[in-house]
Design a protein around this nucleic acid. Structure first.
Lengths: 346, 346
DNA sequence: TCAAAAACTTTACGCGCGCAAAATTATTTT
DNA sequence: AAAATAATTTTGCGCGCGTAAAGTTTTTGA
C-alpha cells in the first residue's frame, strides 16, 4: 500500500511499465498467476506491493470470452434458511476464484424473472438457482437455463438446468415419521393445501408412504393460505385447528419448520402444552432445522437438511459446466439425507 | 420478443441501424429516455419490441463517468432484521434507476473490508453501509468513505461517511422502560458485557437515563459472550442467570430481540413461566421487533424500529450525494423514533 | 553444449460503448 | 416566414483490456 513516486497507475500499461514487464504478460498474470515464470511473478507481486492497482473489472469482462461471475438466486433471503445456504455457497464460489452475485426472488415469480434478466445483463459464466417452485415461470426459467449454464438446488423443476441437488424427502420424512411413531402416537401431517413449493408435495407423499410402510393410518391436515408467510399461516390455521380440538392424535408433523414455529405459537396461545413429557398434550415436529428452531419454546424437534453437501455439490457442478464449457447430456440429480434433530417439542 | 428477420443485433450500432436512428441518439435514449424526441423514443421502443437488445453493461460502465451501481453492505444477512431492511433499501434503489449490490459482512471485520474492496472494484456511484460497529476497522472504513460517497445506517461510526440514519435509542428505550415500569416492576437490563455493536452502548445509557428520569434504581446484567450469535448467548447466559435466581425484579429488558429470544428459551427450559399474566414469574421484553418476535412463546413485547424511514432517508441521502456530485460540509444525522409493540411476554 | 520447449515481448487489432464538437435537420417562437 | 431553439446526425476519439501471431529470450533436458 506504499504509494511510490509521483507515478499514478491508471491502467495495466502503466503498471506493466513500473513492473518492467510487458502488458500482455501482466495480463496473463492476472488471469492466472501460475502461468508466468516464477521470477516474473515475483516481479509483478513486488510492484503490486508498492503500487495500488487492480485491473478494471469492466474492461476485463468486456473482453474476456467468459466472465468470472456466478449468479446465485434464492427464493427469499428473509428466510434465514436460505440466507445460511447462500452464505455457504458464496464462500465456495469465492474459494474457486469466481465472483458470486446474490439475488433474492422475495417469494415472487416476477422478481425471479427480473433476477434472471439482471443476471443476463451481467453475462454470468453460470447460475445457481433455487427456484420458487410452483409459482415459477417454468418456461422462462427453462429458456434461461438453455442460454446460460444453470444448476438448480433446493427445489427441482422438471427439465430446467443441467443438474439438481436437494434433499431426499423420502428418507428425511421417513426418519422423523419413524421416530415419532416409535416414541408415541403416529403423526398427522400439517401442511398447506396448495403449497408454493414442490418440496412440499414430495414431503406429503413421503409422509404417506412412510405411514403406509408402517401400517399406520395417514392423516393430512391441509390448511388454507397463500404465499410465503409460513409462520403466519401456521399460527392462524393452527389456532383454528386447536380451537376445534378434533385431532385424531396428539402428534403433528409439520411440512416445514416455519409452519411448525407458527403452530407452536398457536399452541402456546391456545394453552396447549407442547412437548414429549408426560404432562404435554401435543407433540410438534418440523422439517429443515431452521436456524431459529433451536430457540422455540419448547425447542423444535426436526430433521436437518444436509445443506453443506447440497452447496458443495451444486458449486462443483456449476464449476464443472463452466470449466469444461460443455453440457453433459444427462441431467444429474442427487438427493442428500437429512438427519433427525431431537429436541423438546416431540 | 418477436425475433425479426435474420438480422442479429450484436451491439448498439446494429440496433441503431434497425431503428433507423443514429447510434449516439440511441445511446442517449438508454441513458435517459426522456432526453430524446417523443417520435424518436417511440421509434426506438418499437424496435425494442421487435428485437432483443440491451446495452452491454460492461462497455457502458467502462465508459460512463459514473456507474449506476450502489453498494449495500449489511453486517449479517442471516439476521432477518438486516435481510428485511436490505430488501427495503434494494427496492428503493431500483426505483431510483440504480442497481443495488448487496453484500453481507457475516459479522466479521475482515469480510467487511473484503466487501468494501469488492465494491471498489465495481466503482459504485455510492455505498450504503451498516457497519459492524466496534469490530469494524474504522480507519479503513473512513478511507473508503473518502474515496466513494458513503452513507451509514443502523450503526454509527464517528466521522465515517457523509450521513447517518438510525434509531433514537433514548426515545425507544425510554418508551419501553416507561411501559414496563407503569405495568409492573421496573426492569433490569440484560445485555452483553462487551457488545460488538455501538447501538448496544447507546441502549445501555438510554436505559440508565430512563431509569434515572423515573427515579428507579438501574440494574445492568452484563453477560459474557463474543460475536453475533446472540440467541445462543442469551440462552446460555440466561440459563445461568435463571439457575441462580438472584434477580432483583421480575422484569428483564433485553438489549435486543435476539438476546430476548435466547432468554425466553432459557426461561422455558428453566421452568419459568414468562408473561404479564398474574401467574407468570417473569416478564421479558426486547428491542427491534425482529421478524420472529411475533412467534415466540409467549410472543415478545418489544420496540419496533422505524426502518422504512431509515431506509428511505438513507437512500435519499446517497442519491443526493450521487446526483449533485458534491459532498456537503456537515455530516447529516437523523434518528427515528421506535414504537412500542405490546405482546405477551411483558 | 546444443536443440527443443517454454516463457516472454512486440505488434496489432478489436470489444461495445460514452462523449464531445461540429454540422444538419426539425420544431418552436416571434 | 424568418429566426431562434432544440434535437439529431456525423465524425472521430478514447476507455482499458483480451487475444492472437510472430519473433525473441530464457529455461529445460539430453
Amino acid at each position: 500500500m506504499l504509494r511510490m513516486a509521483a507515478e499514478k497507475i491508471k491502467n495495466m500499461e502503466d503498471f506493466a511499465r513500473v513492473c518492467g514487464i510487458s502488458r500482455p504478460t501482466v495480463s496473463k498474470y492476472f488471469n492466472d498467476p501460475a502461468s508466468v515464470r516464477k521470477s516474473t511473478r515475483a516481479q509483478i507481486e513486488a510492484a503490486l506491493d508498492r503500487y495500488e492497482y487492480q485491473p478494471n473489472i469492466y474492461a476485463v469482462n468486456q473482453n474476456r470470452r467468459q466472465t468470472k461471475n456466478i449468479g446465485l438466486v434464492v427464493p427469499n433471503l428473509i428466510d434465514p434458511f436460505f440466507a445460511a445456504i447462500a452464505r455457504t455457497i458464496e464462500s465456495l464460489i469465492i474459494d474457486a476464484g469466481y465472483n458470486p452475485l446474490l439475488l433474492s426472488s422475495h417469494g415472487g415469480p416476477d422478481q425471479e424473472i427480473a433476477n434472471l434478466n439482471s443476471l443476463r445483463a451481467i453475462k454470468p459464466a453460470g447460475v445457481l438457482l433455487a427456484p420458487l417452485g410452483r409459482a415459477s415461470n417454468a418456461d422462462m426459467l427453462s429458456a434461461f437455463s438453455k442460454e446460460i449454464p444453470t444448476v438448480l438446488f433446493d427445489n427441482n423443476l422438471d427439465d430446467v438446468g443441467e443438474a439438481f441437488f436437494g434433499s431426499d424427502s423420502e428418507q428425511s420424512i421417513g426418519v422423523i415419521v419413524d421416530y415419532l411413531c416409535e416414541t408415541g402416537e403416529p403423526p398427522v401431517f400439517f401442511e398447506m393445501k396448495t403449497p408454493v413449493n414442490p418440496n412440499a408435495y414430495k414431503r406429503r407423499s413421503a409422509y404417506l408412504s412412510a405411514m403406509a410402510r408402517r401400517g399406520e393410518e395417514p392423516n393430512l391436515i391441509q390448511v388454507a393460505g397463500e404465499g410465503w408467510d409460513f409462520e403466519e399461516i401456521g399460527f392462524r390455521e393452527g389456532s383454528k385447528m386447536i380451537a376445534q380440538r378434533d385431532l385424531p392424535t396428539n402428534t403433528v408433523l409439520c411440512s416445514n419448520d416455519r409452519l411448525a414455529i407458527g403452530l407452536l405459537s398457536a399452541a402456546y396461545e391456545g394453552g396447549i402444552q407442547v412437548g414429549r413429557g408426560g404432562d404435554s398434550a401435543l407433540r410438534i415436529a418440523g422439517h429443515d432445522d431452521h436456524p431459529f428452531s433451536r430457540y422455540t419454546s419448547p425447542s423444535l424437534t426436526t430433521v436437518s437438511q444436509d445443506y453443506s453437501a447440497i452447496s458443495a455439490r451444486s458449486v462443483d457442478a456449476i464449476l464443472g459446466l463452466i470449466e469444461t464449457e460443455e453440457r453433459k447430456g444427462d441431467r444429474e440429480i442427487a438427493l442428500f439425507k437429512g438427519h433427525l434433530v431431537k429436541r423438546g417439542s416431540a
